[in-house]
Nucleic acid binder design. Structure first.
Lengths: 150, 150
DNA sequence: CAAACATTGTTATATTCCATAGCATTGGCT
DNA sequence: AGCCAATGCTATGGAATATAACAATGTTTG
């Protein structure tokens, strides 16, 4: 006999949470974002900012609200984002063609350059994630499954 | 000639973001959490709170820090969570057996009852997600892939 | 044993993200 | 002209998260 009375700090049972899709999704997303923050710490680039730069690069001249909507960001909160990126010289808010209310968003030369560097860095990160997932097939499957939840 | 000069608000190009794993993960996670918040609005239960109740139910008598660690919650922030659930009568903080600093967490009868109701509600939600994913096989595959990212 | 150190729960605080309300300016429509 | 919608913006609050510091207690070490 003689149970071990010394601080038996066993591992916890976690079966209940492992069955929850939302919980697992959150953990995975947090892990990926955490890595993003590390990788882009010295560039001082946040995930949302990166997505903004990408979208403007592919859609120059669009209005703030259009970009914000596409990213699921409230236009009120988008203002701060854009101003910060503008303050760093990465984008311009030009007067929109036929609408004096709207700002047409464009990347500056500096912004294009910065985005190129970010893209390279991000490419490496995606490559790491790819190898974690075990190949292109797994990655594509994951993306397809995620789409069904969105 | 004659391009259409009337506000041509075409769809934006989003290829750049669709290739980003983290972005897609975030959107899916947000979508699932959004639904959770809707489903549990009248029960006034947040995702984190639900996970706390589940974990205590499976591991009664554990210390706050143990539960918090398992969920990736800082113990400082965990205090508020626990106090709120205690204020609603769902759990108790009893004196831990051999440690006068620690609180041993236990569900109350009311807590068990509440958790049962939450579980039932959550079961329905998972069932919906399952059908969105297209079956058990897809769900299991998704969970496996998510694990490789965590 | 006494001293040094670690852990536990807690408070306070700052930051970031996200949502809502309201506003001035401008545009579109009737 | 008059009404309503859209656009960018400010202000503000809530929620999640991170850190620092603290008192009480436990653990380890000289």
């Amino acid at each position: 006999m003689g149970e071990d009375l010394t601080n038996q700090s066993d591992a916890l049972r976690t079966e209940s949470t492992t069955g929850i899709l939302g919980y697992r999704l959150r953990r995975a997303q947090l892990s990926v974002f955490q890595r993003f923050l590390q990788v882009f710490e010295e560039m001082r680039l946040r995930p949302a900012e990166y997505s903004v730069l990408l979208l403007i690069d592919d859609n120059p001249g669009r209005k703030q609200t259009e970009i914000a909507d596409a990213l699921g960001i409230k236009r009120a909160n988008f203002v701060t984002l854009v101003h910060a990126l503008q303050a760093r010289g990465f984008l311009e808010r030009r007067a929109a063609a036929g609408d004096r209310r709207a700002n047409a968003l464009h990347l500056t030369g500096e912004g294009v350059q910065f985005l190129a560097a970010a893209r390279a860095r991000h490419e490496d990160m995606e490559q790491q994630l790819l190898s974690q997932l075990g190949g292109e097939a797994s990655r594509n499957q994951l993306l397809a499954l995620l789409d069904r939840l969105s």
